[in-house]
């Protein structure tokens, strides 16, 4: 009995991590709405945002069920405080310029695709089902962000310099992607998630290929921002939640 409860709690944590990454990055991308450098890009970024918010809904609804306390996806999205969020530091990083947004997206998409492909072949049928569905959308995301990294990196002097700066800005968030805590290791031993060392080596291989084509250098990572999965966040997340949760906090249960 206790064993089953532990597995449910572990699944709950995994589902929160997946849902929170999708929701926070989706929210970040939605900030580009009506503000992107070109109309096509405005549409692209908001489409990716919409996909991610859709993913968050699926993951968080499943998280609410795994938890078994009757919380809906909306309760989890709108009524949790900073310390209860499980997303990575990378996704809460502010948009910055378009170069920063694209490098952040490229790092995340590369990780996201590999993780989802692993989950889709994993032993947990519910998680594999959701992963198998959303992975198709994420392939489009990665193609989009990779194309921009190459175009801007191997572009003008200005675009190259901005991309190199963006890599410097995002690189400290990379080690956290491949940090395996006890929860991850437990899920790994249950064959629910892909092995972390394979995820890391495949990510490095794919990212370095695109960066080479973009004539960009992956900076040396001197310090790392970690702890997101344990609820330790940068100050940025608080501002995101203030905006995202305002309505439900001010007018509980509001709907239209």
């Amino acid at each position: 009995m206790n064993k089953i409860l532990e597995v449910d709690q572990t699944r709950f944590e995994l589902l929160l991590r997946l849902g929170d990454n999708a929701l926070i990055l989706g929210h970040r991308l939605s900030e580009w709405s009506a503000d992107a450098p070109a109309l096509e890009e405005d549409i692209a970024l908001t489409n990716v945002a919409l996909d991610l918010i859709g993913h968050a809904r699926l993951w968080l609804a499943a998280a609410g069920q795994a938890e078994g306390q009757g919380r809906s996806e909306d309760d989890l999205a709108y009524l949790r405080d900073v310390r209860d969020w499980r997303n990575l530091h990378l996704v809460e990083l502010p948009n910055g310029d378009f170069a920063r947004t694209m490098v952040r997206q490229f790092f995340f998409d590369s990780y996201h695709l590999l993780l989802l492909e692993g989950l889709a072949c994993g032993r947990d049928t519910e998680i594999a089902g959701i992963a198998g569905k959303v992975v198709k959308e994420v392939r489009y995301h990665l193609r989009h962000s990779s194309n921009w990294v190459i175009r801007l990196g191997d572009g003008t002097e200005e675009s190259h310099a901005r991309m190199q700066q963006a890599l410097d800005d995002c690189a400290p968030c990379v080690p956290e992607l491949f940090e395996a805590d006890q929860i991850y290791l437990d899920l790994e031993s249950l064959s629910i998630v892909p092995e972390i060392h394979l995820l890391k080596s495949e990510w490095e291989h794919q990212v370095s290929g695109v960066l080479a084509e973009a004539t960009l250098q992956m900076p040396e990572i001197l310090s790392a921002h970690t702890g997101g999965r344990q609820g330790l966040h940068s100050e940025y997340l608080g501002y995101i939640l203030a905006e995202m949760q305002f309505l439900q906090r001010a007018y509980p249960g509001a709907s239209w």
Binding site: E40, I43, N47, Y140, H144
Partner: peptide, 13 residues
Amino acid sequence: VLSRFGSAPCKAL
């Protein structure tokens, strides 16, 4: 192709 993303999630321009 003009843009891989269009007026709805299912469409490209």
